[in-house]
Design a protein around this nucleic acid. Structure first.
Length: 890
DNA sequence: GAACTCACG
DNA sequence: ACGTACGTGAGTTCG
């Protein structure tokens, strides 16, 4: 080292491989060797190499079982689960891969990777060199300084977050060294560091913001009170020791220097051999593009295509038109979140080794005729990214899109519906393909959004189109491999087109009806507001939870039921408990209800009525929900009020768009419990549906062991709550909250339920076990959701994952079924040449507008299609109703 | 932009 | 011992 631009990267090998192991689904090569952790580590490594471009690099590992920390505390890291063999066997592989990168690695008996990193970073820092530390463990934040940056992995290992001292301050309000004190107070169950019982992160931070260090907390123990003081007093020694255990030792006797970690890049052929051995195909492909130039680690893919800006030279239109028969990927870039409004920025079309880029105005040119015909031709298959959106954006320029054959966004969603960053740029890097700059980097975001000059814009669009083209075979192969071929090609891809058509059709909404209702709401808001001010004896902002809390709990002295991060909680659950104490509470509940209706629905929906057609055009997001459900945006038409009569009135504004037509609504009856009956195979539950019984009454009869006549309203209500709980992934705590009973009573209910519905219990146990074994759960149609937290040591994370394992196959299969019904319904309407239109989906309900002469047909057809969408061991049931508006269709 | 609250299935 | 029911979108307040 010595030159100013040198940069030392220190990687916490154990921490990263451990994280990678648990974050990635099990992965084996053809020899049955587990490789997921090595794969995760390697992708992370490639990412940080590219991002940071270090000149020196070293991976540190823990060595041996006993370290100097055990001298003072024999239980250190005790009670920790043994490293799973599937992970142990990957350590030698990883070390080989690191060797193939020509990267130094180091371990020293008696010390942990942390300590080696701490020592080397100190040495480098003393020489004034820049250091980057990479780990998954936030303890390492204690090393942050003006020379040392810490990169912590997020979301498994696929992303890293940079921490300078000011970032540490921003996140925790602490100086880097105080991270040690934090751990001293909190402890760390995974390392068996005790800390102080009852003190979690929040309490620890509060104490440290006040007192700064563990020692100072202990010195000022007199200022504390209650249980907290008692806990700390009884654990003073634990706190001191825990702090010591968490302190990284920065004076390890190393016989190596920073210069020994010098790195000048890897040899591509050596690395390729290692990847080939491990069968890292996607990484191999990425590597090949780096070519023979072994110094250039991060070189972006050498363009393998020629970019043609259409219109830039005389014959470019001819070139494009001649290339159309071989065109493959189409990219349409647009600005704005709402695709019904987004402005087109540009287009790119790939054809063999050329990529044609066009500006939106050029679609109006006479030469564009062939391109427009190609876009509209169903027999010309197109690959794209978010073709649903592309279809909407193009259609607003009068251009029709057909032949949607493959959508990389949709495919990537099916492969991992929980991926946080679905952008093309991120998807490319996830699948080990040459990356493209992020849209944010090119366009900026928020107020800084701008369209760059043509050359730059065209280069970006071409790169993205190229990325789409490269992703297609990779994703298509994955879909095949994971058994999602049919789910993709027969359900999701056709559905995307159905959705776009529904959205373009829109639903008519009477602005005048909303305004009338709004006047009524406003009157009641004004009255209630006055009454609240009178009862409070002052005027304040009722909409501010902070001010409301002060009035209720300080001025009026009502009992505090629940607190949240920022102070008193004032949510509906709290207010309902406070209702008997003061008249003001009822008024506040009413005020909340009315203002919600006024702002979200009256005002919100009014803004979304398009003046040209008097309709609302929502946008269904097909790639958002982790379970496979749709989500509705701009506006959300899946949460229009129905439970309370006042809000339900809103539905009167939703009317047919043609005179003499009516609204038809059809909803699945108890679809989730029917799905549960099917997948669990529980005989009692199946029987209940075969007998067409009221399911909650039937549950009450079975759980309470009484005949039908003896089931009272209360018993039915309890049974209903238990049924909900079952679908959500039951916990005694959740049920007790819902029914306002004790946890014990809730647990007894659940036990009673399971003793009757033994098949359901078996299913719940086996699905959780399956999730642990495979790392994911699936729906009937093989939709998949990974649950990395299912093996977490953190109770909360693990419990959440377990409930999710129980719920996702149920909610997801229900989503599969209604999606199937939608695709079939669309076909049925076409086949029969019906004029009726499918307008909305609300998870278990479909809404249509129907001309009078089709009433009778639709009344039969809709439930028939819905009920036969998928054959289960129990019948599916759909109820239909008609009305002159959505309110009447009930 | 995060936190809180609340509308729906 | 831990402290949440599952899945969403959107409006308001406030730092």
């Amino acid at each position: 080292m010595g030159k100013g631009k040198d940069k030392l990267m220190l990687i916490d090998g154990n921490s990263i491989i451990y994280r990678a192991f648990f974050a990635l689904p099990p992965l084996t090569n053809s020899n049955g060797l587990h490789t997921n952790a090595v794969f995760g580590f390697t992708t992370m490594l490639l990412k940080v190499l590219e991002q940071e471009k270090p000149t020196h690099i070293l991976v540190a590992f823990d060595a041996g079982k006993v370290t100097f920390r055990h001298e003072g505390y024999a239980e250190y890291k005790g009670g920790r689960q043994k490293t799973p063999p599937e992970l142990s066997e990957q350590f030698p592989l990883l070390k080989e891969v690191i060797g193939s990168f020509s990267i130094s690695q180091f371990e020293l008996a008696g010390y942990e990777a942390d300590d080696i990193i701490g020592t080397l970073s100190r040495k480098a820092e003393e020489e004034g060199q820049e250091v980057v530390v990479v780990s998954g463990d936030k303890d390492l934040l204690q090393l942050a300084s003006d020379k040392v940056t810490v990169l912590l992995t997020r979301k498994g290992v696929s992303e890293v977050e940079k921490y300078s001292p000011s970032d540490v301050d921003e996140k925790y309000g602490l100086k880097p060294l105080q991270i040690i004190d934090l751990k001293g107070l909190m402890g760390d169950p995974s390392d068996n560091i005790p800390g102080v019982p009852g003190v979690g992160e929040k309490t620890a931070l509060k104490l440290l913001h006040e007192y700064g260090t563990v020692e100072n907390v202990l010195d000022n123990i007199g200022n504390l009170k209650g249980k907290l003081r008692e806990n700390i007093e009884n654990n003073m020694e634990n706190a001191r020791m825990s702090k010591q255990l968490a302190t990284i030792y920065r004076e390890v006797p190393l016989d190596m220097t920073v210069e020994d970690a010098a790195w000048s890049g890897y040899d591509a052929s050596t690395l390729a051999a290692a990847f080939r051995k491990l069968e890292f195909k996607s990484l191999l492909e990425r590597l090949d593009l780096h070519g023979a130039d072994d110094a250039a680690v991060e070189k972006v893919a050498k363009a393998e295509y020629e970019m043609v800006i259409v219109g830039s030279a005389a014959d470019t239109w001819n070139q494009l038109n001649d290339a159309l028969p071989k065109a493959e990927a189409v990219l349409v870039e647009s600005a704005g979140d709402n695709p019904h409004q987004a402005e087109m920025i540009g287009l790119a079309i790939t054809a063999v080794d050329r990529i044609y880029v066009l500006q939106p105005e050029q679609l109006k040119a006479s030469e564009a005729e062939e391109l427009i015909a190609w876009l509209a031709e169903p027999d010309r298959p197109k690959t794209g990214y978010d073709l649903h959106r592309v279809q909407l954006v193009l259609s607003r320029s009068g251009v029709k899109l057909c032949g949607q054959a493959f959508d990389v966004q949709l495919a990537a969603y099916l492969l991992d519906p929980t991926e946080a960053d679905p952008s093309l740029s991120s998807t490319l890097s996830r699948y080990g393909l040459p990356t493209v700059p992020s849209d944010e980097a090119v366009f900026g975001k928020g107020a800084k959004f701008h369209v760059p000059p043509l050359e730059e814009l065209a280069a970006h669009l071409a790169a993205k189109a190229d990325g789409i083209r490269r992703l297609k075979p990779v994703l298509a192969e994955q879909l095949d491999k994971l058994g999602m071929r049919r789910l993709y090609y027969e359900l999701e891809q056709p559905l995307a087109i159905v959705l776009a058509n529904m959205e373009q059709q829109g639903i008519k909404c009477e602005g005048a009806a909303l305004q009338e209702l709004g006047k009524d709401f406003q009157r009641r808001i004004d009255e209630t507001m006055k009454e609240i001010y009178r009862l409070a004896g002052m005027e304040f902002n009722i909409g501010s939870p902070k001010q409301l809390g002060e009035v209720l709990f300080e001025k009026l002295g009502l009992p505090v039921v629940k607190k949240n991060k920022t102070g008193y909680s004032t949510d509906a659950e709290v207010l309902e408990k406070l209702e008997p104490h003061h008249e003001i509470v009822r008024q506040i509940l009413h005020y909340r209800q009315m203002t919600k209706l006024q702002s979200t629905y009256i005002e919100g929906l009014t803004k979304e009525i398009r003046p040209d057609d008097g309709k609302i055009h929502t946008y269904y997001r097909q790639t958002i929900a982790a379970t496979g459900r749709l989500a509705s945006q701009y506006p959300n038409l899946q949460n229009i009020p129905i439970r309370m009569e006042e809000g339900r009135q809103i539905r009167k504004a939703f009317v047919p768009s043609e005179p003499g037509w009516c609204i038809l609504a059809a909803d699945y009856s108890q679809i989730e419990l029917r799905v549960l009956a099917h997948i669990s195979g529980d005989e009692r539950l199946k029987e209940a549906f075969l007998q067409e019984m009221d399911i909650h009454t039937k549950t009450a009869m079975d759980v309470f062991g009484v005949p039908k006549e003896q089931v009272d309203a209360n018993m039915r209500r309890s049974a209903k709550a238990v049924n909900f709980g079952i679908v959500y992934g039951i916990s005694d705590y959740g049920l007790s909250q819902n029914l306002h009973i004790t946890r014990k009573e809730a647990a007894a209910f659940i036990e009673q339920y399971f003793s009757v519905f033994q098949g359901v219990r078996k299913y719940m146990d086996s699905i959780v076990e399956q999730a642990r074994r495979d790392g994911y759960v699936t729906t009937l149609l093989e939709r998949r959701r990974y649950l990395p937290d299912i093996t977490a040591s953190n109770f909360n994370l693990r419990s959440f994952a377990e409930r999710t394992a129980m719920n996702t196959p149920i909610q997801g299969t229900a989503a599969d079924i209604i999606k199937l019904a939608m695709v079939k319904m669309d076909e049925a309407l076409r086949e029969r040449n019906l004029q009726s239109r499918m307008l909305l989906q609300v998870h278990d309900e479909l809404v249509f507008e129907v001309p009078e002469e089709e009433f009778e047909t639709m009344k039969v057809l809709v439930p028939q299609v819905m009920e036969s969408a998928l054959e289960l061991d129990v019948p599916l049931k759909a109820d239909v109703s008609f009305g002159s508006n959505w309110y009447e269709a009930k």
